[in-house]
């Protein structure tokens, strides 16, 4: 038996919106301590990893580990039934064939229920090692979104360079070339802060198209954390207050 109730259902709705363009069918792993999922995009260059702790739920019960195979596209359609102020409850029996999703609005007394059919997914589960990233950049999520969006209109690829003084996003395309450079900024206004933790400089190139997809999660968190390490995938991380973390991994582009 699994049951989890989230008071702020909007968070779950935002999570589904933030991953639905990247992954299609996903195994959701239920454990007594929380909910997690890991899935790659169809081209296997990006990976989504979500971890939600049971502590963030108003009510959480999972007697055993369970795997719920879900079509994210269909889950997104079901989530459209939820009002932004709804509480969301997820329920599944042992050996379940469907996931019951309940939306409740205590103010308007409206309740919506949907039984989403589960699917069997044969997916690879990768072991992601604990990595000491040599450059970690914490940046306002709205600002990072805007930088990626605007640079994408100029180039398909962005080069991210870090050093102890700044992080630089540079592009080179038919239009020309240029860069956005952000220095370490620990101003009193928290939302303006850019925090650089660089032990070793990194220079890597990435497909901006993916970064734009990841940035859909910027509504989940005020800050985006970029973790870089030469020869390793970039991690774009969004902390979800009191609930968990949504991480995206993206393979760097390398010269052929």
């Amino acid at each position: 038996m699994f049951e989890a109730k989230l008071t702020e259902g909007l968070i779950l709705k935002k999570i589904v919106e933030s991953i639905k363009d990247i992954v299609t069918d996903v195994n959701i792993d239920i454990s007594p301590s929380g909910i997690s999922l890991q899935a790659m995009d169809s081209s296997h260059v990006a990976l989504v990893s979500l971890n939600l702790s049971m502590d963030g739920f108003e009510h959480y019960r999972a007697d055993t580990n369970m795997v719920l195979g879900v079509s994210i596209a269909n889950l997104a359609k079901v989530m459209k039934l939820a009002d932004n102020n709804d509480q969301i409850t997820l329920q599944a029996d042992q050996e379940a064939t469907h996931l019951k999703i309940i939306f409740e609005n205590p103010k308007t007394e409206r309740t919506t229920e949907f039984n989403l059919n589960l699917i069997t997914i044969d997916s690879e589960h990768l072991a992601i090692p604990e990595t000491e990233y040599s450059s970690v950049v914490t940046i306002n999520s709205g600002e990072f979104s805007k930088i990626c969006k605007e640079l994408f209109s100029l180039s398909e690829t962005v080069q991210i360079t870090t050093n102890t003084d700044y992080v630089q996003f540079s592009v080179e395309g038919e239009v020309g070339s240029g860069q956005v450079r952000l220095g370490h900024n620990d101003s009193e206004k928290k939302e303006d802060q850019t925090i650089l933790e660089v032990s070793e400089s990194v220079q890597q190139q990435f497909a901006i198209r993916y970064l734009n997809m990841f940035n859909k999660a910027s509504t989940l968190s005020s800050f985006t954390r970029l973790c870089l390490h030469q020869e390793q995938p970039l991690v774009v991380e969004f902390k979800i207050d009191n609930l968990g973390v949504l991480k995206y991994f993206l393979a760097p582009k390398i010269s052929d």
Binding site: I128, F249, A251
Partner: peptide, 14 residues
Amino acid sequence: KFKQKDMTYFFKNK
């Protein structure tokens, strides 16, 4: 030209 390596190149299968 650029290429991107598969995620399974970086992270091993469990």
